[in-house]
Design a protein around this nucleic acid. Structure first.
Lengths: 337, 337
DNA sequence: ATGAAAGCGCTAACAG
DNA sequence: CTGTTAGCGCTTTCAT
């Protein structure tokens, strides 16, 4: 790897001149500029970014923290994130946390020691003060999907309106004649699931229906637990005529259980998902549900973060936090009647 | 962020002493060691990795290049890769290439300028000399899945035996009574697909069957093209009684098309996939097929790369390339009769 | 407009 | 065993 010194000596100028023409925010004589550029060409010189980072105190690197990249929800978000980060000259470091706080903390320390420019985290659970602290320490930070109500207006967030989305979905189910609507609830530590649940209940109530706890499945361990729960739920004397799953992975295992029981979707029971992951349309029957703009969420998070980074650069402090509420749609395919 | 100088002054020693106790490969008086550690504790000091990198000429960072992280095949590989890289103290930079050579080249340049320690690429197509050059330039490099026959023994690779896997899968189909076995072929620029095709043909031939080109679908644009191709294939006077898809995403769209035609799987036609992506077992019916150890492929690639990195560190040159051939299984679920 | 020199934070000779 | 010093490659005052 050739360095700036070499280029300087070839061009017959000092290293500062080389630096100046490359950074382009200083006036340089046209003649010398030419000479330098020539030398750069000839040597195929690329400035050493490590040295640059050390000098400048920033790394053009951002960190993306997800529970697991193998989960399609996150892999689609990350795709959007990485695409726009890259387009803006940033590289992204991927961190799978497996929802292990220790691992998160370790990672955060390592990242700080590398002068990372900012963090996007999709894996916040509960308080997780060490995450919120990031912003207080001056790091640009954005939370996707998993954040607490108390984070709103305090930290940048991106998500859909989970209450509204769930409400509309259930309203649709009611309007299309469903009388007994079940619900597959996710972990209640997560605000987003509490909101989806609230939307489910409110829609029922607003349409003169009751919230029947015997129709609600609560996640105990992993997503797989819904397999058995669905089987027992559907074996009750009065099974539901629709099940609204609070996420697509849950909807997938629910459909799987239903098929294994020989039940027909949607004739025997409708199924509605939440996410609209790529494969949702490939299921049999193709899954209806709330569609989150996953790719776009990644994009917006990247923009939000990059804005914070450049704002901080010029103003010396972080801009006011913004809440990015994205639009969700209800897409009806064939798993609902 | 506190730095080494500060720690030194608090401990009342020189910065080199601090460096020595922290790196631990020099003998230091127990007394002073204590003092330093105390100062480190008190200040919560973390060595600046950017400075360390600049000094040492390495970054403890490795680059993972995939066509698209939104593709479950790659997201599962990346999960395995990231897990083991992290466990070994490396961070991983994720690069989605969208199979755009320009984007790959740009990325590579940027990575080199950061003194990246090594590359894992899952996105090599055809020659792609600029990828192979990496190894010649002295960079540790491993290729997962997508490599050419000519790369074997020249660059580290990890994959399953694609010929054998496909051969065995088709043999199974024949043994279970299928007479007209169709095939969904992937892009023939990729050696791995040529091998799977070869395995398909060879199995047919070895069992006294002919390779009937009218039963073979060739990918034209993206995976979606198999939707229409499946429909026309199944509308022929003598449709196949089984379809072997050269990858799970293809199998998914094929099943989708079959369902839309009202055909039953496996009663009317069996479907066999290749990959055994997480969701394969969630399909209706659950998909049979060749199972690649995706997570493990990521793991092995990480180990292979890390070995190269440390070997190079001590020997000044890369070790001989190794071909990692992983074991694949045939998992039979309910999409085959 | 250009060069010399300081310094980002660290490691590793080299002295002592 | 410990301190001093010279860089790693770059940017940026400060002179000229």
């Amino acid at each position: 790897m050739t360095n700036i010194k070499e280029v300087a000596s070839i061009a017959g100028v000092s290293i500062s001149t080389v630096s100046r023409v490359l950074n382009g925010r200083n006036v340089v004589n046209e003649e010398t500029r030419k000479k330098v550029l020539e030398a750069v060409q000839k040597t195929n010189y690329q400035p050493n970014l490590v040295a640059q980072n050390l000098k400048m105190g920033r790394s053009n690197t951002i960190c993306m923290m997800v529970p697991s990249i193998a989960n399609p929800i996150f892999s689609e978000i990350v795709k959007g994130f990485e695409d726009t980060a890259q387009r803006n000259g940033f590289i992204v470091v991927l961190c799978n946390t497996d929802e292990d706080p220790k691992r998160e903390i370790d990672y955060l320390e390592k990242m700080k020691a590398r002068w990372i420019d900012g963090f996007v985290v999709c894996s916040k659970i509960g308080e997780a003060k060490y995450i919120n602290d990031l912003r207080e320490e001056g790091y640009p930070l954005v939370l996707i999907n998993r954040y607490e109500e108390t984070d709103i207006g305090v930290i940048d967030t991106v998500s859909v309106d989970n209450f509204r989305s769930a409400y509309d979905a259930v309203k649709y189910l009611i309007r299309t004649g469903h009388k007994r609507i079940g619900f597959a609830q996710g972990r209640e530590q997560l605000y987003l699931y509490r909101e989806r649940y609230r939307g489910y209940c409110q829609a029922l109530l607003d349409h003169g229906m009751e919230v029947d706890q015997s129709l609600i499945m609560y996640e105990s361990y992993g997503t797989d637990c819904f397999y058995h729960m669905t089987k027992t739920l559907m074996s009750r004397p009065e099974p539901p005529d629709a099940i609204f799953a609070s996420s697509d992975p849950k909807a997938f295992v629910i459909m799987h259980a239903l098929h294994d029981m020989g039940l027909r979707i949607p004739e025997d029971v409708s199924v509605l998902g939440f996410d609209n992951v790529n494969l949702a349309s490939m299921m049999e029957p193709p899954l209806s549900g709330v569609s989150q703009p996953l790719y776009e969420m990644g994009t917006v998070a990247a923009q939000s973060l990059i804005y914070q980074i450049s704002y901080k650069e010029t103003h010396g402090e972080l801009p006011a936090p913004v809440r990015n509420l994205l639009r969700s749609d209800l897409v009806i395919r064939r798993s609902t009647k």
